[in-house]
Simulated assay, not measured.
Amino acid sequence: MTEILPPVTDPALLGELDVLARRHRAAGGVVMQVIGYVGTSAESLLEKLPAPVRAGLEGATERALEGAMVAAGRSRGIVADRPDWMNRTLTAAMGAAGGAGGLASSLAELPFTVTMLLRAIQGIAAEHGFDPASEEVRVECLRVFASAGPLEGDDGMDLSFLAARATITGPSMRSLVAKVAPRLSAVLGQKLAAQAAPVLGAVAGAAVNYAFTSYYQEIARVHFGLKRLARDSGTDEGVLREELVARITT
């Protein structure tokens, strides 16, 4: 028989959940609405990308994620975590450089941007008291990418990143990368299409990367904020998750 857990009634916990819900909604706020215009334009350009690029995008994303998991982890012993604004600035500069050279340089820039995003997510995990070097937290960092991206046509309310945890093993990690890659590749395809636009490539690359970083940093703060709340309060994470989802969707 499934155990029925009591609902959350502590006013302090409910207040914390309200804060996380507002942060989640803010991730798709004014900045994302502006960048969403670029996303809409990029979506119409997506079919104009060379067929080999479109066909290989998912595989390239999967390889970028796998490489980012290694590179981001190794860099933690060399470079200290940076504040949010610096991560946004650095990724925007990367996007501008990638977009300036058109499609070829945008493709070359892609794995570096993914690594920067993952490193920023790992920094937020550490900020909330979790060890990014542990296998479990590495999986949780990767799971943040399962959320809707900043250039999605919907309102970004996909809550799959809040799904119940899977068993954490090596094969599970590879399986999660394979599951996240199609989702992320669709968003990265829009990024590439925007950067491939004549003249505006550098501007679009900077804007899209800025949006990506802002969005995933906010989603990471929701994700690890929820986990910290469960850890510190001793409340079942699943119960808190349900309460959070209810607040986000109402």
Rank of each mutant, 00 (worst) to 15 (best):
89 T>A: 15
90 L>F: 11
95 G>N: 04
95 G>V: 03
96 A>E: 04
98 G>D: 05
99 G>N: 05
99 G>P: 07
102 G>Y: 02
104 A>H: 13
104 A>R: 15
107 L>F: 04
108 A>F: 07
117 L>K: 06
117 L>D: 13
118 L>D: 09
118 L>V: 05
118 L>N: 09
119 R>Q: 09
121 I>Q: 11
121 I>F: 00
121 I>R: 02
122 Q>F: 05
123 G>E: 05
124 I>W: 03
124 I>A: 02
125 A>F: 04
127 E>V: 02
128 H>K: 12
128 H>L: 02
129 G>K: 04
129 G>S: 06
130 F>I: 04
131 D>V: 02
131 D>A: 05
133 A>Y: 12
134 S>Q: 06
138 R>P: 00
140 E>V: 02
140 E>W: 12
142 L>Y: 09
142 L>D: 11
143 R>G: 07
148 A>Q: 10
148 A>H: 05
149 G>I: 05
150 P>R: 02
150 P>K: 03
152 E>R: 01
152 E>H: 08
154 D>N: 15
155 D>R: 12
157 M>R: 12
157 M>S: 15
158 D>K: 02
159 L>R: 08
160 S>T: 15
161 F>I: 06
162 L>M: 11
164 A>G: 08
164 A>I: 01
167 T>P: 02
169 T>I: 02
170 G>T: 10
173 M>F: 11
174 R>V: 07
179 K>Q: 15
180 V>M: 03
181 A>Y: 06
183 R>Q: 13
186 A>V: 12
187 V>D: 15
188 L>M: 12
193 A>P: 07
194 A>L: 03
195 Q>L: 00
199 V>Y: 15
